[in-house]
Design a protein around this nucleic acid. Sequence first.
RNA 1: GCCCACGUAGCUCAGUCGGUAGAGCGUGUCCUUGGUAAGGACAAGGUCACGGGUUCGAAUCCCGUCGUGGGCUCCA
Length: 644
Amino acid sequence: MSDQITLTLPDGTPLEVPRGTTALEAAEKIGSRLAKAAVAAGVDGKIVDLSAPISEDAKFAVYTFDSEEGKHVYWHSASHIMADAVMQLFPDAKPTIGPSIEDGFYYDFEVSQAFTEDDLRAIEEKMQEIIKADEAFSCTVEEKPEAEKLFEQKQNRYKLELIDEIEDESVSLYQHGEFVDLCRGPHVPSTGRIKHVKLLSVAGAYWRGSEANVMLSRIYGTAYPSKEQLEEHLHLIEEAKRRDHRKIGRELDLFSFHEEAGAGLVYYHPKGAMLRHLITEFATSEHIRRGYEIVRTPHLIKSDIWMTSGHAQQGYPMYYTEVEGQSYGIKPMNCPGHILVYKQHTRSYRDLPIRYFELGTVYRHEKSGVLHGLLRVRGFTQDDAHIFCRMDQLTDEITGVLRFADDMLHAFGFEEYEVFLSTRPEKSIGADRVWEEATEALKGALEANGLTWEIDEGGGAFYGPKIDIKMKDAIGRLWQGPTIQCDFNMPERFDMTYVGEDGQEHRPAMVHRVVLAGIERFMGVFIEQCAGEFPMWVAPVQVKVLPINDRNFDYAQEVAHRLRCEDMRVEVDTESGTLGNKIRQGEMEKVPYMLIVGDKEQEAGKVAVRKRGEGDLGQTDLAEFIEQVLPETKPDARYCAVVQ
RNA sequence: GCCCACGUAGCUCAGUCGGUAGAGCGUGUCCUUGGUAAGGACAAGGUCACGGGUUCGAAUCCCGUCGUGGGCUCCA
């Protein structure tokens, strides 16, 4: 047996090192800067501590903070340091779990008194001390009974529960300073590796995420190797606050909620209602162009229908009422209504596909704690449609929806999105075989369209699997957007049929789909996406005319009239005040164009154009301005269906 | 629904130890008629979310309800 082993680096380069070399030593051989930045290593795809000796030929990678793996290790180590700090300050706390998450980490504790925001500063300071002490992280492997003894001593039933579930005979423990934690690892070599820490918030969280369990106290935090990175992250949080649709909704006077009138129910003000009108008008015309027919169904439907559909038995969060002794349910979905319309006639295979579209307003009894601005409400309207088709048409139909969704997202400025395939949830109806078939249909359409997707296990609707499209906004956040659900269960339950070429009755397939999805939610996301600076074609007010002097009022009205003749949405600022003040007002209202008209413009039949984000563009003829901006007032034709 | 925090003028927020409220913006009136992000003066505007309780006295302390926020869970 040779004393040398060969490590294969990610680029394929071989690296000869003595057997038993640690990952850190190997990293040093590659480069001292790399070794310094290293937080963990990969050996044959497994993430290990830098102190781990390597005893055989292996694929070898060094992970720095810049990699996904590195971030995970870095943040997970930071969570241990936080737990240590908490234990020093609150010796009675019981640490439970503390993983890394997308942008940082959290740790959940059982405490008699939940942490407050004020505690964070003290904990953060204690963390700084631990970091400064640069205590080494060490890993020991203990037999399960030994580990159990340790956590029994600490009276930590959470860790005991975790140990109980580990299948191996032994478990690993990580220690730095006095703090020992059950942990799979790996960790950075020492606490000093964690540089810039920030604790962000406290929150309640159930043990293991189940509401049947006790409520723990969670602290969220993040950490970065450089101050700049931390500040960039904090800046992103600020930016998200700046874009908050609830704030912008108030500032731009778009919508409101009313405590005395019920939570989660939206009141649209004129500008918000105009925005909504423009969005839904565009969505509706695109549906018509793409072969959908508009239908309209009642909000109140006898509960028997909700039994047939399965909503009632599934415990779907509905509102019920009684009319002359009969139980009725307010619709949480539009599908049963569309099914009733379908069933009104005997359908032939020649009729299919049938695509029913409805701007369907639905109500769902969402738990009070989940309500959130426009993003989570109790009453909302979907751009909902149901496609009834033959099995041989299914892939084409799903493809059509995928393209439709792609167009619509682009039309609203969402350039990127991610696709998820959500499979059967626990609470669901129908035979396994039916679910498999439906899932395959969705998968087939995704493949046929060359899309890549991730699986969301158990994320489907109760009646069928679905494709979820999550759109990425201007600052990289993902939002639930279009969904396409493939359903063979409802047609069965409602005994839907069509007559085939063979003269026999067949069962149609059903596709439930929304593109903008909940209009309220879409508006919320859209507001955050553009930070209230709506593109011209959906801006509630497109042009504001600012007369400089009372003498210019009539001319300003004339300009406004000319623009309105071109179907533009115009306001005239007739307030008394300085031009500077009027401009400031217009800027805060985020109006795309301001036309300033003073004596000079009035005499020449011109307007002085000021564009949002660009400022003063100088004088131009009114006719010329109209000609220039008119194309902007319409949705981007590239994303509209071609009308034959 | 659960945990924690919060709720004061239309909005953003002060309000100390329990002694019945303040600012800025906005609004109204008047003055000002202005050239690319705030002209000036005066005025109006609050059952301190709501309902109980403790107290001589509650915006302030306690309980409940409603609502909001951060999460958990759920979801378009």
